[in-house]
Design a protein around this nucleic acid. Structure first.
Lengths: 108, 108
DNA sequence: TGCAAATGACACCTTTTGGTGTTATTATTA
DNA sequence: TAATAATAACACCAAAAGGTGTCATTTGCA
């Protein structure tokens, strides 16, 4: 009842690196499938499937505009992951976190 | 070079609900496979496979003690997920986050 | 009206995943 | 030392995941 019982799990939706790239791509702009497909070395059909997985998880919304379907990020379901992560935060060392962030900031 | 090139991705490792439960189980205690298996309705072989996936992702460490192998949480790789999530945090509404946390706090 | 663009809907294929059972291997302990 | 407990290592299987290509449908426009 309280949970919408989505077909695809959020954790599973972000497991695929292609889908993660799609989310960053759609973070600040609305895009139709054709434009999204140009950013990936796979067919439009495959892109469409990934978008459906993301949509089932509630991570993107689609809107029909004329003959194209525009997708955009719907970040709210990511809260579930954040909450799950919060539980584990007490177990890692804060100093290690600071170190790791420092290390990764200079090879980006 | 900088990345250890782990066989299994952290995002993919936490995609499976059984593996997520294993992580919470191993969060505050070290456990051998037999004890872990008792918490799940699957065979020891299957449990072992899940533990290997987690181990490949760096999320658990194993230590041989006599004839048993004890596993324990290694939370550091979760930092990668936290960092990925941090990027999206700017896109969700803070009020919505507060609401969602309030709602979920009373049906737990 | 009629053609082209954009996407939806299938059918199909291969690899991975999550599971099983069986058979070693190693370590305790009676 | 022999029996047993704990797990590692296979071989195997069904279903799902990620991909392909083809065809149908809908919309924009010359």
């Amino acid at each position: 009842m309280s949970a919408p019982a989505l077909k695809h799990d959020v954790f599973q939706a972000i497991a695929d690196p292609t889908r993660r790239r799609m989310l960053t791509l759609l973070a600040d702009k609305e895009m139709p499938i054709a434009a999204i497909s140009e950013c990936f070395p796979i067919t439009r059909t495959a892109v469409n499937k990934h978008l459906h997985v993301l949509s089932d998880a509630g991570l993107v919304s689609s809107k029909k505009v004329g003959r194209e379907t525009r997708y955009r990020l719907q970040p709210e379901p990511l809260i579930e992951i954040k909450q799950w992560l919060d539980f584990f935060e007490q177990y890692w060392d804060e100093k290690l976190l600071a170190l790791k962030m420092f290390v990764e900031s200079d090879d980006a």
